[in-house]
Amino acid sequence: METSYKLTLIRHGETNENRLGIMQGQMDCALSEVGEQQARALGSRLAADKMEFTHVFSSDLQRAYKTATISLELLAKQRQKDTTRTEGESSPGDSTPATHNGSSSSNDGVAKGAEQGPATTITRDQLLREFKYGTGEGKTRVQLNAVAQQLGMTLWEYTPPGAESELQMEARTSAFFDKLNSFVRDRCCSEDCAADEAALKFTSTPGLASGGGASAPPAQPHLAVYTHGGWIRVFLHVLARKHHLVSRVRGIPADRLSRVPPNTGVCQFTVRLGDGVTQSSARVECTMAHDAQHLDSIPPVE
Rank of each mutant, 00 (worst) to 15 (best):
residue 10 I to Q: 01
residue 11 R to A: 02
residue 19 R to M: 08
residue 25 G to V: 00
residue 25 G to Y: 07
residue 31 L to R: 00
residue 34 V to T: 15
residue 46 L to K: 00
residue 46 L to W: 07
residue 53 F to N: 00
residue 54 T to R: 05
residue 54 T to H: 02
residue 62 Q to E: 11
residue 66 K to I: 10
residue 72 L to F: 11
residue 78 Q to Y: 09
residue 81 K to C: 00
residue 84 T to K: 05
residue 91 S to C: 11
residue 91 S to D: 15
residue 96 T to E: 13
residue 97 P to K: 10
residue 99 T to W: 03
residue 102 G to W: 06
residue 107 N to T: 01
residue 109 G to H: 05
residue 109 G to S: 09
residue 114 A to T: 13
residue 122 I to M: 08
residue 123 T to C: 12
residue 124 R to T: 14
residue 126 Q to P: 12
residue 129 R to W: 04
residue 131 F to L: 03
residue 131 F to S: 01
residue 143 Q to M: 09
residue 143 Q to Y: 05
residue 144 L to Y: 08
residue 144 L to Q: 09
residue 160 P to G: 11
residue 166 E to G: 03
residue 167 L to Q: 10
residue 178 D to A: 01
residue 182 S to Q: 04
residue 185 R to E: 01
residue 187 R to K: 12
residue 188 C to D: 00
residue 191 E to R: 10
residue 195 A to P: 00
residue 195 A to D: 07
residue 198 A to D: 13
residue 211 G to L: 06
residue 219 A to G: 10
residue 224 A to W: 00
residue 228 H to I: 07
residue 229 G to I: 07
residue 230 G to W: 07
residue 234 V to Y: 01
residue 242 K to M: 10
residue 247 S to I: 02
residue 261 P to I: 10
residue 261 P to F: 08
residue 262 P to V: 11
residue 265 G to L: 03
residue 265 G to V: 04
residue 266 V to C: 06
residue 269 F to T: 01
residue 270 T to C: 11
residue 279 Q to N: 12
residue 282 A to Q: 05
residue 285 E to P: 05
residue 287 T to M: 02
residue 294 H to K: 00
residue 299 P to G: 11
residue 299 P to E: 14
